[in-house]
Amino acid sequence: MTLGKVFKDKELVFTTKTGKPIFPRHLTIQFNEAIQTAEVPKIRFHDVRHTHATLCLEAGMSLKEVQDRLVHSSIKTTGDVYATVTKNEREIH
């Protein structure tokens, strides 16, 4: 908004400062820099998706809602990958 007409909103999640698509490699570089700055354990960018899904399930979101968020074509994929993780995590803690 501060850039006014310079920013072209294309409804993308990750963009350059002017709204253009960001190259995946550049996003990975920025993500890794943020991890170093925050001094947290290194993870892959894709792991953020897994973390989000797991946290949604642990917070009580239905498997169907998580499937919709992740745009999985089959709820079986969501359940096989994420529901098992949350069940195991609960048993550990």
Rank of each mutant, 00 (worst) to 15 (best):
E91F: 09
S74I: 00
R69E: 04
H50T: 08
I35F: 08
N88M: 07
D68K: 14
A34P: 00
Q67E: 04
H50Q: 09
F31W: 08
H50P: 03
H52A: 11
L70A: 09
T28M: 12
T54N: 12
F31C: 04
V71R: 12
V85A: 06
K76F: 13
H72A: 10
T37C: 05
P21K: 10
K17A: 06
N88G: 08
G60E: 15
E91L: 14
R25P: 05
R44E: 06
L57V: 02
V81P: 05
G19R: 07
I22A: 01
V66N: 03
E58V: 01
E58L: 09
H46G: 02
E58G: 03
T86N: 05
Q30M: 11
Q36W: 13
I43Q: 02
H93P: 00
V66H: 03
E11G: 04
E33I: 07
T78F: 03
K64F: 13
L12Q: 07
F31Q: 04
L12C: 09
G60T: 14
V13E: 12
P24S: 13
Q30I: 08
Q30G: 05
R25K: 14
T28Y: 13
T28G: 07
G19H: 06
A83H: 12
T16W: 00
K64D: 13
N32W: 03
A34N: 01
D68Q: 15
L27Y: 11
G79N: 07
E65I: 14
